[in-house]
Every structure is written in C-alpha cells, then in structure tokens.
C-alpha cells in the first residue's frame, strides 16, 4: 500500500473549502475510483494532487512529497492527468497535442508515441487533424494520449466516460485496463456512475460534499445499501 498517499487533504477556493481532510491510499499497479455526484469535489481532488489548487495536508508519491510543488515538477515526478474538460490545444493537430505532452519526457517520445498509437489506433489515423474539429470520444483519446506522453507512473483520469457513447466508454475502460496490466500504470479515475467504476476499479472511495463517506473494495461495496441508493440510479 501507499504508492500514492493523500493525508488530511483540504482544498480551498478563496474562502470556500472544497475538500475536508480527505485520506486516500493507492497501491502500485492498482486502479481505484473516486465516486461522487456533481460538485462532490472529485475534480478538485485530482487538481490538488496535480498541484493546481490551494491545499493543506500532505500528498506523497512513493518517497516524494508532492505538496507545495508546482504542476511542472509533479509531472516530472511521474503524475499524468487527463482532465474532465480535456484542456486540449484546439488549433494544434493531434500529433502536436501529443508532442506537447512529451515536453518533459523527451527521451521517451518514440516509445510513448508507439504505445499511444497501439492503444488508440484512431489517433494515428487522425494525427493531422486539429483537435477542435474532433468528437468527444476522440478528444478523450487525445487527452489520455497526451497524459501518457509524460511517461506517468500514476495516471489521473477525471470522469473518463462523461458524455461519451456506451461503446466508446467500453473502449476507454479497456484501454485503462490494458495500461495497468501491460504497463503497470497506477490509475485513479473519478466517476459519477458507480456501476462503471465497479467494472474497472478494485476499490472505491465515495466522496460527498468534499469528504470521503464510504471506502472499500468493490466486493464489499457491491451490496452496500447506502451506495446502491445513492449511485446506481443512473
């Protein structure tokens, strides 16, 4: 246990507090899911790990303390992030978007590009297309691909399936699973849909109003009435 550890993490937007003493621990090679409704603080949690918010508490990756470092340093230490809104570079081609992802991992470009093209053959076919003209599914692929170009040991994926067609969701899930199985990447995803989260993750943390309410393995939570009631509606 404890490749990524988040201890007593609180996050703030001005005076408003968005996370309240969150504790999370992720083992190497594990896939975990942060489940929560809209506004629960999922994106804030991932942003905080990435050094993008004002926080108190401690975040560690392996032996490195991430707290207080800026995103560029955190990327260099091995954290990749595919955000909810993708944050792609709209007037750049797919390939240039991926190349920006390689900014810190310049020695691994060929290997990473190869891996991305294997996982998402579509990105190779469309490598000269500008991302502003792409569909949501394709953008999600570029976003994941760009994160993979940073050579991450830990991959954060914010709501990988939001707004995507069911078929594309399955494709994305399959890729994340392969990433973990074939490349040993540790993965943290967030989800509003607990069903989808359970098909992919080994453990879940349920976030409500910025605090962890429930945590446990998928097996132990599958029949949890509290969870069933709140998150299987969709």
């Amino acid at each position: 246990m404890g490749f990524l550890t988040v201890e007593n993490l609180s996050a703030f937007y001005g005076k408003a507090q968005a996370l309240h003493k969150v504790n999370i621990s992720v083992a190497q090679g594990e896939i975990i899911a942060i489940v929560g409704a809209n506004g629960a603080g999922k994106s804030t949690l991932l942003d905080s790990i990435m050094g993008l918010t004002k926080t108190t508490g401690v975040i560690k990756l392996g032996d490195n303390v991430l707290t207080g470092l800026g995103s560029p340093a955190i990327v260099r230490l091995g954290v990749g992030y595919a955000t909810e809104r993708f944050n792609l570079f709209p007037y750049m081609t797919v390939r240039d978007n991926l190349m920006v992802g390689a900014y810190t991992a310049r020695d691994d470009i060929e290997r990473n590009l190869d891996m991305v093209h294997k996982l998402f053959p579509r990105l190779e076919e469309r490598e000269n297309q500008e991302t502003m003209t792409q569909s949501g599914g394709e953008r999600q692929m570029v976003s994941l691909g760009r994160a993979l170009m940073t050579s991450p040991k830990l991959l954060l994926v914010d709501e990988p399936t939001i707004g995507l067609a069911p078929k594309v969701c399955l494709e994305i899930a399959e890729v994340l699973r392969r990433l973990r199985d074939e490349f040993g990447t540790t993965i943290v995803i967030t989800e509003q849909n607990a069903n989808f989260a359970m098909t992919l993750a080994e453990r879940l943390y349920v976030l409500e109003a910025g605090a962890v309410q429930i945590e446990g393995t998928v097996e132990s939570l599958r029949d949890d009435p509290k969870l069933t009631e709140a998150y299987f509606g969709h």
Binding site: S71, Y81, N87, F89, T104
Partner: peptide
C-alpha cells in the same frame, strides 16, 4: 491555447 493543459503537460 490552454494554460491548464500546458501546466499538466509539465
């Protein structure tokens, strides 16, 4: 084009 996208790219 996207400050956050740039930051998370290192």
């Amino acid at each position: 084009m996207d400050a956050k996208g740039a930051a998370i790219s290192g």
